[in-house]
């Protein structure tokens, strides 16, 4: 502990006092224009170096900005400069919907339980859909049945039925949209040998509006 040497490994000596560090460096900043030997090259080098870096990196960034100019929202879908949304991204708004395919899916989810995969129903319990005038005939009647449901005794292709078909409009539990109703109806009108016309979304909307007052299910008498 009593070693007075300046070079003791266990207690390094300071080379400068804190106050001197402040004063000397403060003066260095204040006198920066003072010309010195070989000193003037440094600002020139720094200026050239910094501007070159900014130039090169700016080129890199602009080249790789990948959709930043398309807006922040679209940019979240663009992960690389080679991806060009105008060229490579199909337009969301004109995605063609195949009514038959969607209708088939809806049919498979719901209707198939009663009317069966082959559209023949179960004789005496659930009426068929293939080769039936109710299906391939009047469009409005068919839309009406789907929106409001149907119950009570009726005869289809010479067989007597007394069942209940639920409403798919707002009064039932399904509450399908105009699109869904039109797709599934188009599907059943063109499947199993049926060759009737397509039912448009607009037609469904018209029928829905025209019969909005009805609160009860249809019966055979209404058809």
């Amino acid at each position: 502990m009593s070693d007075n040497s300046n070079n003791d490994f266990r207690r390094e000596a300071s080379g400068a006092s804190d106050h001197d560090i402040q004063v000397v460096h403060g003066r260095m900043l204040a006198n920066q224009e003072e010309p010195k030997e070989g000193y003037s090259l440094m600002p020139l080098f720094m200026l050239g170096f910094v501007s070159t870096m900014i130039f090169l990196v700016a080129i890199y960034f602009i080249h790789n900005r990948a959709g930043l100019s398309e807006g922040l929202g679209l940019a979240t879908q663009i992960q690389d400069k080679r991806f060009n949304p105008d060229k490579h991204m199909p337009d969301d708004t004109v995605v063609a919907i195949d009514p038959i395919a969607v209708g088939q899916r809806l049919y498979a989810q719901v209707c198939v339980a009663c009317h069966q995969v082959n559209g023949m129903g179960i004789p005496g319990a659930f009426p068929p859909l293939a080769a039936v005038d109710y299906v391939t005939g009047d469009e409005d009647r068919l839309i009406n049945i789907l929106i409001h449901g149907l119950q009570g005794p009726m005869e289809v292709n010479g067989v007597q039925y007394n069942g209940l078909m639920p409403a798919f409009g707002p009064s039932g539990t399904y509450n399908w949209s105009d699109e869904q109703i039109s797709y599934v109806l188009t599907y059943i009108r063109q499947e199993w040998g049926n060759e009737a016309s397509e039912i448009t979304v607009e037609r469904v909307a018209e029928v829905r509006a025209a019969t909005a007052d009805r609160t009860t299910m249809l019966t055979a008498a209404d058809l």
Binding site: L72, V95, D98, V102
Partner: peptide, 12 residues
Amino acid sequence: GYGTLTPHYDAM
């Protein structure tokens, strides 16, 4: 940007 990114609705 992410605020505008929504799940994609597939009508099909």
